[in-house]
């Protein structure tokens, strides 16, 4: 069967038909009495609204040849990613929003720039048609990993306070005293992206490749893009998670090398 050129249009009526999937999910929530009906509905509404707004924004930006506009949009995307990460981390006593934002912005910009400018060869490298989707994939994937690993780091430091203090008392630096906990948190953040390397193409066809195939691209070209994207995601996740964890770990200790995270129970 020959490939179709360009993606087939989806009308408003056909989009409405797709909303039956949401109805099905809501029905399962009702049947199982798990109380997710409202979050599913709100999530679906947000999904439609946010994607529609993003569609208009992208259409507008594609028409303007300005790196600053691309950077501004990217900053907004990263800011929202950080906001989501913050919501996923239960421990609120250690400030990590600003260092997370700066690290994510720098790492994502560098990694995406390398992919779009060097590997794909787009000129200029910040061309919104390539830079924004690639950067969005990087941000979306690693923010989940970052939330996981930060939550793990902070909750483990709190729960294993005795272990950390024992090592501090034996002369360890904060880095030495928290090294095992740091490693576990880093691993927790990286494992999903590493696993997806093994599962892609067998267990699932990722979104970028799917989108390209749907729009009529040769699958052999689509897979090359996807391979680049998968490698990019692993690297950006590893870099972001390790850098942010390192900065946040430092903030968990006072200048006197006391662990600042504590339960409410005094000793």
């Amino acid at each position: 069967m020959p490939l179709t050129t360009g993606a087939l249009d989806i009308s408003a009526a056909e989009l409405a038909l797709a909303s039956l999937f949401i109805v099905a999910a809501g029905a399962i929530s009702l049947w199982g009495r798990i109380g997710l009906g409202k979050p599913i509905l709100m999530g679906a509404v947000r999904c439609v609204l946010q994607l529609t707004i993003m569609g208009y924004v992208l259409s507008f930006i594609f028409g303007i040849a300005s790196p600053w506009v691309v950077l501004l949009l990217f900053c907004v995307m990263v800011a929202f990613a950080v906001r989501i990460v913050r919501g996923n981390v239960s421990e609120k006593s250690i400030p990590f929003v600003f260092p997370s934002f700066v690290t994510m912005l720098l790492v994502y910009t560098v990694v995406t720039g390398i992919v779009s400018g060097l590997i794909v060869g787009v000129r200029p490298f910040w061309h919104p048609q390539y830079f924004i989707p690639l950067a969005g994939m990087v941000a979306g994937n690693s923010m989940t990993a970052l939330g996981l690993s930060l939550d793990r780091l902070l909750s483990d430091l709190k729960a294993k306070r005795d272990l950390v203090e024992m090592q501090l008392c034996l002369g360890a630096t904060p880095v030495e005293a928290s090294q095992d906990i740091f490693r576990d948190a880093l691993k927790a953040g990286m494992i999903p992206s590493v696993n997806s390397l093994a599962g892609v193409g067998l267990v699932f066809l990722p979104g970028m490749m799917t989108g390209q195939i749907l729009s009529g691209e040769d699958p052999m070209l689509a897979i090359r893009y996807q391979i680049v994207v998968m490698f990019m995601l692993v690297a950006s996740t590893a870099l972001t998670v390790s850098l942010v964890l390192g900065i946040v770990r430092q903030r968990c200790f006072s200048p006197g090398r006391q662990l600042l995270l504590r339960s409410n129970r005094p000793q």
């Binding site: 005795d162 272990l163 090592q167 008392c169 034996l170 002369g171």
Partner: peptide, 30 residues
């Protein structure tokens, strides 16, 4: 903390060998 050593009320002992547990302080730079 090297000079003023504090022994916690509840001992914190890992699953490593007794030797590794005893020699743990020597793994720290100081």
């Amino acid at each position: 903390r090297q000079q003023v050593a504090y022994l916690q009320q509840t001992p914190v002992i890992s699953d490593r060998s007794v030797r590794d547990i005893l020699l743990q302080p020597f793994s720290f730079r100081i």
